[in-house]
Simulated scan of single mutants.
Amino acid sequence: MLAAVLYRMSGSPAITNPPAFTDTVEEAWYMDAVSWAAKNSVISGYGGGTFGVNDPTTREQAVTILWRYAGSPANSETTDFADAGTISAWAQSAVRWADANGILDGMVINQRFNPKASVKRSEVASMLYQYLIEQK
């Protein structure tokens, strides 16, 4: 669903030669968004030809997806999360960027980010809202 939102935020560009994933359905509602996300390196899937279209998304994955959508901006900030050591190495830059730019407002409780938990729709909505405010 996050791929579909970001695809639409990008103007729903036409898709040609969509990448093949073994776990997607060619005519599914998400196919253009999945193809766009993969072609633009916003979401790469898991490798081995799978996208994970029906898999829950973790909080660190959602933040990384938004960070990639934003162009993977460099950030030298640090985070002071009590659970910072549990954030995957591939998500570290994205989480630092999101934290420094207020995108995680309302998602951090007791200095814990809880990176491996499934992200809630309300958290994604909050992240997108904060991101759009940040862009103005």
Results as ranks from 00 to 15, higher is better:
38 A>N: 14
38 A>E: 05
38 A>Q: 14
39 K>N: 15
39 K>I: 05
40 N>E: 10
42 V>Y: 00
42 V>M: 06
43 I>Q: 11
44 S>G: 15
44 S>K: 13
45 G>M: 02
45 G>K: 01
45 G>D: 05
45 G>H: 01
45 G>I: 12
45 G>N: 04
46 Y>H: 10
46 Y>I: 02
46 Y>G: 14
46 Y>R: 10
47 G>F: 06
47 G>D: 00
48 G>E: 04
48 G>Q: 07
48 G>L: 02
49 G>S: 13
51 F>S: 00
52 G>A: 10
53 V>N: 01
54 N>I: 01
54 N>D: 13
54 N>S: 12
55 D>L: 04
56 P>V: 06
57 T>M: 15
57 T>N: 04
60 E>N: 11
62 A>S: 07
63 V>G: 05
64 T>Y: 06
64 T>E: 03
64 T>S: 15
65 I>Q: 02
66 L>A: 02
67 W>T: 08
68 R>Y: 07
69 Y>Q: 10
69 Y>F: 12
71 G>K: 09
71 G>Y: 07
71 G>S: 05
72 S>G: 05
72 S>L: 08
72 S>Q: 08
72 S>V: 00
72 S>A: 10
72 S>W: 07
74 A>G: 13
74 A>D: 15
75 N>T: 12
75 N>Y: 02
75 N>G: 11
75 N>S: 13
75 N>F: 04
75 N>D: 12
77 E>H: 11
78 T>V: 08
79 T>M: 05
79 T>G: 14
80 D>Y: 10
80 D>F: 14
81 F>Y: 13
81 F>W: 08
81 F>N: 04
81 F>R: 00
82 A>D: 13
82 A>H: 08
83 D>F: 09
83 D>M: 03
85 G>E: 07
85 G>T: 09
85 G>P: 00
86 T>V: 08
87 I>E: 07
87 I>T: 03
87 I>W: 01
87 I>M: 08
87 I>N: 03
88 S>Q: 12
88 S>R: 15
88 S>A: 15
90 W>S: 09
90 W>F: 14
90 W>L: 05
91 A>D: 00
92 Q>S: 12
92 Q>H: 01
93 S>K: 12
93 S>Y: 00
